[in-house]
Structure formats: C-alpha cells, structure tokens
Design a binder for these strands. Sequence first.
DNA 1: CGGGTTATTGATGGTGTTCAAGGGGTGTGG
DNA 2: CCACACCCCTTGAACACCATCAATAACCCG
Lengths: 264, 264
Amino acid sequence: MRIAGKGIILVSLNDKSGLGDASVNSVVAGLCASPEGCRSVCATCRVRLYAVCSAMSEDDIADLERLAAHVELSPRTALFQAGDLARFVYTVTSGTLRLQRDLADGRRQVIGFAIPGDFIGLSLDETYQFSADTLTAVGLCRFDRKDFTSLSHSRQPLLERLHLAATHELTIAQDHMVILGRRRAEERVAAFLLRWRDRLGRINGRSATVGLPMSRQDMADHLGLTIETVSRTMARWMRDRIILDVPGGIRVLDQQRLAAILPD
Amino acid sequence: MRIAGKGIILVSLNDKSGLGDASVNSVVAGLCASPEGCRSVCATCRVRLYAVCSAMSEDDIADLERLAAHVELSPRTALFQAGDLARFVYTVTSGTLRLQRDLADGRRQVIGFAIPGDFIGLSLDETYQFSADTLTAVGLCRFDRKDFTSLSHSRQPLLERLHLAATHELTIAQDHMVILGRRRAEERVAAFLLRWRDRLGRINGRSATVGLPMSRQDMADHLGLTIETVSRTMARWMRDRIILDVPGGIRVLDQQRLAAILPD
DNA sequence: CGGGTTATTGATGGTGTTCAAGGGGTGTGG
DNA sequence: CCACACCCCTTGAACACCATCAATAACCCG
C-alpha cells in the first residue's frame, strides 16, 4: 500500500500479469473508504465539459449527480470482464483504461483505450462485450446502467449526447479497421502514435511529448502486430531521430517524417 | 437497359470496375421516372419491422413517410462517396451495398455490407466517412438528413432506435477488429461466411445456401486479405466437401467443420 | 541489490503476398 | 450462332513481411 497525493489511498493488487489474475474484485478507495464509492460532485469535475454530462443543464445536473458514485481504481485492476452482467456504465475522470476482447486460445485484441471524458458502456446489451482494465490509477464516475438509461430517456439532450458518442466511436472503429486490414506494420505504429498524441492533446493541450501508459504488448495487441515488431519499429525511429525515448512515453522530434509514413 | 420484375426499369450504368468510375450520378428509376425518387409507402414496406422505422407508432409513421422518398439503384452504382456532403440518410429495403474506405494509394478496406433493414448514415458528420456502392439492384428509403435528425429529436422512440442501431454497429465493428487484428486467413473467411449466413438468415430465414453478391475482391478487402488467399481457402473447402460452389454463392455442407475452424 | 517482468535485438522460418499464367462465364458484335 | 473480348476467378511458383524462437538488456519495485 502506498500513499498518493491528497491523501487518497491506493491499494496495489499486485496483479503484474495485466492479463491473468484480473478476476479479483475492483479496488475501490479514495477519500471515502466505502467500497460503494463516494458521492460525485459534478461542480468540480474536470471532464464535465468533455463528457456526456455536458448535455445536462445546470438545473438537471443534480439529477445526474444523484445517480453518480465516484470510484478510484489502482493501476492494473479489472473494472469488468467480457460476459459480466453489465450493471454499471462509467465516465472516465482520470487515468487510462485498456478495453479488449479475448479469444479462447489466448490471443487478444485491444479494442481501444479509454481516457478522461470517455464513456464506457455504450453498448445496450445485458452483458459487457469486452473487458476493461486500468493501466494507471483511474478515476471513474459510475452510474447504475438501468438508472442511467432511464434518465437518458427522460432527458433527451443526454440521449442525444450518448448517440453522438456512439457514432463517434463507430467512426473511430472504422478508422481502426483500415489500419488493421490494409496498413503495413510501420504505418500502423505511426498512425497509432499520431492519433494517440491528438487524443491526449485534446485534453492536456498539444505537446511533442506523448505519454504511453500502455505496454508494448498492449500496443501490439491493439495494432494486430507482435511486441517485437512494435519494438523494432520504434527503435528504428529512435535511431533516425524521429522520436526520442522519454520515461513513460516518447517525444516526437520530427512530426513531418512520422506523418509522411502514412499515405493518405 | 433491361426489364426486371414488376415493371421496374433498371438502367445499367456499365460501370464494370466497381471501383473507378463511380463518380457518375446515382441512377434513380422505378415506378416513378423522376430522379427525385417516388413517394414511399410504409404500409407495404417489407423491412419496416426490422428497420429504425419500427420505432414509429402507427400514428407517427405518417410523419416519417412524408420525409421519405423511395429510390431504386442499378447494380454497381455509387450511392455516395467518402467526403461528399451528407445530404441524405437511407434505409435499405432490398439488395446489397458495399461500404468502404479508400487510401490514397488504392488500397481499400470494405467496412461492411448493407442489407435490407440496415440504416446508412448513422454518423452525424457533415460529410460521409465512407463510400457506398450497390452490388445488386438496390431499393432504398431516402430521407433528408437534417429533416430526419429533426424528426428524431421530436420523436424520442426514433432517436432511441437510432442509438440502438449505432451501438449494435459498434459491437459488430469491434467483432471485426478481432478478425482483422488477431485471426489467421482461414479463420477470417470462415467467420465471414458464418456471420454473413446468419445475417441473411435473419431476413430470409435460415438456409444452407448462402448468396454472395460481393466479389472475391470485396471479400478480400473486407477481411484484410488478397483475392488469391480467399480463393485458395474456399477452393480447399470445396475439395474437402465443407462447402459447395453454387451460382451466386455457396452452400454450407458441413456446418460443424466450418465452425470448428474458429477458436472461440 | 535481486527477483521478475518488460523491452530490445538477432537469427530463422512461415503465412500470406506478389507475380504470372490460364480457365470459365457472360455479354457483344459480326 | 459463333468468335471475341473482358472480367473474374483459380492455380502455381517465388518472394517478402512479419512472426516465432531465443538470448540478453533494461527496468521496476520489493
């Protein structure tokens, strides 16, 4: 156990595999000790303007807040697994999660990564269609799925915002199909770095330094490659001074040449 | 020009490439000669119960019908291209379309195929994010996008149904990411045949005979393979009596062995 | 430090691509 | 009605990209 800033207690699960032993219960901690999560306060929420919550008026936000519980998770923790009964939906307030599907023989496909402002649980199925695990410490705003659905049916702007989020995700998914289906290894990695950088830039502001909280294996499983190919590709770019290795990520030295790798 | 059943006139565009010269205007024909499309009649619509229109009550359907125009397209016709201003959204009433994205150097990724009951244009962007071309003769119910959006904002069940369609598409897209990212050639083709069969079965009723209106090239571009790999894979299955070649498609002889190719 | 995980780097090999040639169906025009 | 052209599909052979296997290095946290 270690103490992180602001007196928030993070409980390490010691799940180093990141794959295997993720069936343990999610760790819930924070200012409130209760595993139920503590009351959310939308007024001070940093992602409120990016998230689906932005659809709610000042008057209505209280109704949303009443349904919300704030949850803090340690790094390398399972939020839920594919097939679990989908009790909750979430808005990410801080940190990064990995969303993935697994095949029976161990192969896995990382569907995407969720960052602050993202909504998790758009699918209307009774069970989750993918697994979600934290990569870093993560803060989430949690809602009971049925309550949230009911609210979205009585507050149309929220439903519209959810629909916007869903179609946006759909476009991103189709982009990724092109990457997986028709791009070569080098192009895949370049496309990933540039898009990831853009996504982070929309939250933190644009920067040449790109944090990569996911492992090389996660990147490989996202891009349909092996860890060796990802590693070799990035090593080559480092030798060529296109990117620079920095702790916890990379720095883009030559945006031009990186972008030039991508036809179109 | 040739005559198809029920006196509907189909105009052949003679666009044999299926790729190149698709910038011609969409051919609009049918019982009404007007290129504007003729008035739609929901009462006799065969896909009404499957399509997003099913969200409309008997009373409200008239409002939807007022916005709708029915359009008939010849095979191998461009409905719209990626980047075009998204003036319309569509419900497919008959036939099959191919949805695809193209890279600058000619590589393409077939995002999916649209069949009766499918909604085209879920994205809320001002421009289309992919191209849509007919494979067969196609019937569509066409709506002005802005009018349709307005209506969905005043008829909540329609919006809910659209959202349902979007999240369903999203799940399918994620399924396809697994295929493209982590499955071998043989698995990809098997998964495609089995899923395509299921989709058709939901409309026509289950059958061992599976129509394949798309070319081998289309299948390859959907599965991230080459035409040769698709051809060789299916040829092997034909030798092994797993499938049988029938005009315009295949017949599944051994569902067991085909399904066994897929772990999970 | 020291154990274990993750990343890098090299050598080898396989799956699927690329290149090339031939077959089969269909529509067209003589 | 047949010949021809034109796709589309099939099949074969050689190759290339990336995966696999293997060993070492760097890292992280205890």
